[in-house]
């Protein structure tokens, strides 16, 4: 099928994006002032010891050589050892990344589902109260950053009206063996429904804080696309042929109206990986954020490069997935360059 070649093309293109990203990360990490070896050993370490560590970390070599060493290792999944945790960076990332991914994954589902639903609702009730309410929330969503919303949530649901957990991924009384790294799925695999429910309640607030602003904005884009398509000749024609309303609504109107919101959602979902840093910090979510921030504060070069690189890969993959979904919906993109012959 033609979608196969489309995916292949996108994957090949993304290799160049990732090479560019790796060079950028490497340069930024190396030009930040301060000596990583000195930082790792502390101010009172003797000069010879610091020099030995510099050699060990190959910080004495030229920058291109350092980059080449770093890149070949990175391709093998080896980002070196973290100067702070003294463990291989990839091990640290494995431990924390999935918690972040869990958050982003469910936030993405939340956003796609509710944005579509609210978009249809707003379009069908154009200029009535439901539409106005969604519009109001969209404006509020744009003007309040996710981390402020997160702080409000912690205040309201953790202090004033404590009905939902606001800290960590799972209450301490549960112990679930790690299989997928996603707490809900792990609990379900373990057959522990109570733990799964507990993990779910822990997810609600961070997920909503992360996804809410985007959800309302996407809903607005969805609304606009639907109302725009509603005035098109093809809808009038389909109506004129006596095709039932529900078929027009959910087949002929919905599909072309999904294209614009889907493309924007792709960007938003990818950006969530970054925004998740702040939300995680507030909800004490054991994700990549705390690890990444500590890495930056201690100038833990390997950890910084590793973390950013992994997030970059995630970002790129999320974009490819969305592009593929858009291409599946829109034949004009899928078959671009393929003539009707």
């Amino acid at each position: 099928m033609r979608i196969g070649s489309f995916i292949l093309r996108r994957l090949l293109l993304s290799i160049f994006v990732l090479i560019g990203l790796s060079i950028l990360i490497f340069i930024i990490a190396r030009i930040v002032p301060g000596d990583p070896a000195r930082l790792a050993l502390g101010p009172r370490a003797p000069v010879e010891v610091v020099e030995r560590l510099r050699k060990e970390l190959q910080l004495d070599k030229s920058l291109p050589v350092q980059y080449w060493i770093w890149l070949t290792n990175a391709l093998h999944g080896d980002f070196g050892k973290s100067l702070v945790s003294k463990r291989p960076v990839i091990e640290d990332i494995k431990e924390y990344l999935l918690a972040t991914l869990e958050l982003v994954f469910f936030a993405a589902i939340f956003m796609v589902f509710f944005a579509t639903l609210l978009g249809i609702l707003a379009a069908r009730n154009k200029d009535r109260w439901a539409d106005n309410l969604i519009r109001m929330f969209a404006y509020i969503g744009v003007s309040i950053p996710a981390f402020v919303l997160a702080i409000f949530f912690v205040l309201i649901f953790g202090y004033t009206w404590p009905i939902l957990p606001v800290l960590s991924r799972l209450s301490p009384q549960f112990d679930v063996p790690r299989v997928t790294g996603f707490m809900i799925f792990d609990s379900l695999f373990a057959g522990n429904l109570n733990a799964a429910w507990n993990a779910f309640t822990h997810l609600i607030l961070p997920v909503v804080a992360l996804a809410l602003a985007g959800t309302f904005q996407e809903a607005r884009i969805m609304r606009a696309a639907m109302l725009d398509n509603l005035t098109k000749d093809f809808i009038a024609a389909e109506k004129g042929y006596g095709i039932p309303e529900r078929i027009i609504m959910f087949k002929y109107l919905l599909k072309p109206s999904m294209i614009a919101p889907l493309s924007v959602m792709g960007m938003d979902i990818a950006a969530m990986m970054g925004i998740a840093f702040l939300v995680e910090l507030i909800f004490n979510w054991p994700g990549l954020s705390r690890y990444g921030i500590n890495a930056m504060l201690y100038k833990d070069l390997n950890a910084i490069s590793g973390t950013v690189m992994i997030i970059g890969v995630g970002f790129t993959l999320a974009n490819i997935v969305v592009d593929v979904i858009v291409a599946l919906v829109d034949p004009r993109i899928r078959l671009a360059g393929v003539s009707g012959e």
Binding site: F234, E238, K255, D330
Partner: peptide, 22 residues
Amino acid sequence: RLRSREIAMIFQDPTTALNPVF
């Protein structure tokens, strides 16, 4: 019934009268 059995309308602009994604 009128729309589906009796009358058919051909629109002016064939570039907009067909749904682009089906």
